[in-house]
């Protein structure tokens, strides 16, 4: 099983991407998409060293909902700050200590931070232990770090890293 279908999640998403790209749902394209989704992971297997395993699908779903809400919230927040003008901003660099260890979870956390209210991840330290985050406007850096850890890092750790 592992050898015939090394990355099932990748296969499914590639097949879906193919159907979106051709923009029609015919039997031929479903077969072609499935075939592409099956073959491409073999050709690119060196880019996928770790097996992706989702442990808590419900937590993932809740995380995705929080994520979408925060994207909208973040955009409105940033738009409001831009319209207020540059004089009112209090930009700060904060260092977020990471509890995550896998590359996938860290990159997902960094991307989430960049898309959510007033924060952009700027730099990951060489030992992958701290993430430098730039925030547009904050008066309490410690609370911001706590919010990032509680809101995004805890579910990501539960989904991708926790052994149970």
């Amino acid at each position: 099983m592992r050898r015939l279908l090394p990355h099932p999640l990748l296969t499914v998403s590639l097949a879906l991407l193919w159907l979106l790209l051709v923009n029609q749902l015919s039997a031929g394209h479903i077969v072609l998409g499935a075939l592409l989704g099956w073959l491409i992971p073999f050709a690119t297997s060196r880019f996928w060293p770790e097996q992706i395993r989702v442990r808590h699908p419900l937590t993932l779903l809740r995380f995705l909902i929080v994520f979408v809400i925060d994207i909208v919230r973040g955009s409105f927040h940033v738009a409001y700050l831009i319209l207020l003008g540059p004089a009112r901003l209090r930009p700060v660099f904060v260092a977020v200590p990471l509890a995550l260890r896998s590359d996938l979870a860290i990159s997902l956390l960094a991307n989430t931070i960049s898309l959510t209210p007033g924060t952009v991840s700027a730099h990951l330290s060489a030992d992958k232990r701290t993430l430098i985050v730039h925030t547009l406007d904050t008066d309490d850096a410690a609370a911001l770090v706590a919010e990032i850890k509680q809101r995004y890092e805890t579910p990501l750790k539960k989904i991708f890293e926790q052994e149970d």
Binding site: V78, I82, G118
Partner: peptide
Amino acid sequence: GLARLRDFYTRLHGPTKATTL
């Protein structure tokens, strides 16, 4: 935001969030 804000790091926020949405 890109045109109006005062340093590079604050300017980064406008295009990444507002423009993407």
